[in-house]
């Protein structure tokens, strides 16, 4: 299981074109590597959204508190050359500009994935240094991404009717408070994925 950088760029370009179509706010940015001066593409989305904290009751029944706090979110989807897979970095601030704590970010995980994350939170989402900007971002651990892609039956040799990057992103989106519009799932793909 591995995705090449070129595949990633193709999938990201397709995601971006549908995002433009429904005005979803994703942009395709470029970062120039200071070493070899190559340009590296990645997806970015910034948005303010109201979010709920979810907590598990002691009897493990689902519960969530409707508190609708506005949160400023910034998501970066990068290609990770070590793991040959997509990699998500994100930051969340309250509207006064203060960065949310890691504990707060954990609490925003959707309740149906909550228990899994609680059990192993230090291997799920932690704060790490962004590889392009050298500043702190939250990050979903990349080995989870390879795992998700495997479960989705991704292999670089398969042909796809769907965009694997979108399938992956919509799978992990409840972990990071990201909403993926349903139309990404049934759009007419203009690109042939190979």
């Amino acid at each position: 299981m591995s995705m090449t950088y070129q595949q990633f760029v193709d999938y990201a370009t397709d995601l971006k074109s549908h995002s433009d179509f429904i005005d979803d706010g994703w942009s395709l940015c470029q970062y120039q590597c200071p070493m070899n001066e190559n340009y590296i593409k990645y997806l970015v989305k910034k948005k303010i959204q109201k979010m709920n904290k979810y907590s598990l009751k002691s009897d493990h029944s689902d519960s969530h508190t409707e508190n609708n706090i506005p949160v400023v979110c910034e998501y970066h989807i990068l290609y990770n050359p070590s793991y040959s897979c997509p990699d998500v970095f994100f930051n969340m601030w309250s509207t006064d500009g203060k960065l949310l704590s890691l504990e707060h970010v954990w609490s925003l995980v959707h309740y149906f994935l909550k228990e899994n994350v609680e059990r192993d939170k230090w291997n799920a989402i932690t704060q790490e240094i962004h590889p392009f900007f050298s500043t702190p971002f939250f990050r979903l651990h990349p080995c989870k991404n390879t795992h998700v892609l495997e479960m989705l039956g991704f292999s670089s040799k398969n042909n796809y009717e769907f965009n694997p990057l979108i399938a992956w992103l919509s799978t992990i989106s409840p972990l990071i408070g990201l909403e993926i519009h349903l139309s990404y799932g049934n759009k007419d793909s203009k690109v042939e994925f190979t």
Binding site: S101, E103, W122, E128
Partner: peptide, 22 residues
């Protein structure tokens, strides 16, 4: 905006072990 929070030893452990894994 420049350095990671380090509220407890688990953050160091998690950071170190994920580097080893990579």
């Amino acid at each position: 905006d420049q350095i990671l929070r380090c509220s407890c030893r688990e953050s160091v452990e998690s950071n170190f072990m994920s580097a080893m894994k990579e």
